[in-house]
Write a protein that binds this DNA or RNA. Structure first.
Length: 235
DNA sequence: AGCCAGGCTACCG
DNA sequence: CGGTAGCATGGC
C-alpha cells in the first residue's frame, strides 16, 4: 500500500501537531513582510504583512526586496534590518541595477543599522549580481549556496519566501524550540533538521512558509532569553 | 552593563 | 568532516 508509513511515526505526528497548535494560537503570519507600496507617505513606510496572500512577491523588485532582507537580517534583529531597507528605499535602491550604482560609502551607511556592514555590503552586491543574471528564472539551491554570503538558511529563505519554492527553513529558533521539546539534539546538522521536517510534512510551500514564521513568532516570546523555553505555555 | 538578534566565512584540528 | 572566532549595530 502507498499510504506512507512515515505519516504514522511519533516524530511525524509531533511535527504536524506542533504546527497545528501554533497555527491555531497565532494564525496565519503573512510572511515575508514587504515595505509599504505607498510612496506618497514616505515618512511612514512600515512593513506590511499579508496573511493568507501567498501571491506575493509579484514584481521583480518585490522579490529583490525579500532577498535583501534575508541578508540584512542575518544574526540581526528584524527591526535593524527593516531600518536598512527603509534607507535603501529612500535611495531608490530596492532595485538591483540602482543598488549596484550606489556610491559604496553611501550604500554602507544605508545598511549600517543591520550591522556587519563590511560583510553585508559585499554579500548584497554578490547576491544582486546573481539575481540579475537569473533573468527571471528560479535559482537552484546548489547555485544559491555558491554565492558568498548565502548559507543554508539564507538560501532556503530566498527560495521559500522570494521564489515560493517548497524549501523548509531552519533557524536558531527552530533548533531551540525542538531541542527543548526533545525531538532533536541542538547540534544536529542543518540538513538533518531540514530533512526531518520535509519528510514529515506535505511538500507544500504554504505549510513551510507558515511553519517557519510561526516558529519565529513563538520563539521571540519564549526562547530569546536563557534558559530557553522554561516559560513556554504551549510546549 | 551586558546579552541578544530571523548567520556566514575562513580557518583550525 | 565538525567546531568556532570574528564580524557591527541597535534594543532592552
Amino acid at each position: 500500500m502507498e499510504l506512507n508509513l512515515y505519516m504514522t511515526t511519533k516524530t511525524g505526528n509531533e511535527i504536524r501537531l506542533i504546527y497545528n497548535k501554533l497555527y491555531k494560537h497565532y494564525g496565519p503570519q503573512g510572511w515575508w513582510p514587504l515595505l509599504g507600496m505607498d510612496s506618497s507617505t514616505e515618512t511612514d513606510v512600515r512593513m506590511v504583512y499579508h496573511p493568507l496572500n501567498y501571491d506575493l512577491p509579484k514584481t521583480r523588485n518585490e522579490t529583490y526586496e525579500i532577498i535583501l532582507g534575508t541578508i540584512l537580517t542575518q544574526n540581526t534583529a528584524w527591526n535593524s534590518a527593516e531600518m536598512a531597507l527603509r534607507n535603501l528605499k529612500a535611495l531608490n535602491a530596492i532595485d538591483p541595477e540602482n543598488l549596484l550604482g550606489l556610491d559604496t560609502e553611501i550604500f554602507k551607511q544605508a545598511i549600517r543599522s543591520a550591522g556587519f556592514l563590511n560583510q553585508k555590503s559585499v554579500y548584497i552586491k554578490e547576491v544582486t549580481k546573481f539575481y540579475i543574471a537569473l533573468d527571471g528564472k528560479i535559482p537552484k539551491r546548489e547555485k544559491l549556496l555558491e554565492v558568498k554570503g548565502v548559507g543554508n538558511e539564507t538560501a532556503d529563505s530566498i527560495l521559500l519566501y522570494a521564489f515560493k519554492q517548497p524549501e523548509f527553513v531552519v533557524d536558531t529558533y527552530t533548533k531551540r524550540i525542538f531541542s527543548h521539546i526533545g525531538l532533536i539534539d541542538y547540534n544536529y546538522s542543518y540538513n538533518k533538521i531540514k530533512n526531518l521536517f520535509e519528510t514529515h510534512l506535505s511538500h507544500d510551500m504554504i505549510i513551510y512558509n507558515e511553519y517557519h514564521a510561526l516558529l519565529v513568532e513563538h520563539a521571540k516570546k519564549y526562547y530569546s532569553r536563557k534558559p530557553y523555553g522554561v516559560a513556554d505555555p504551549l510546549f
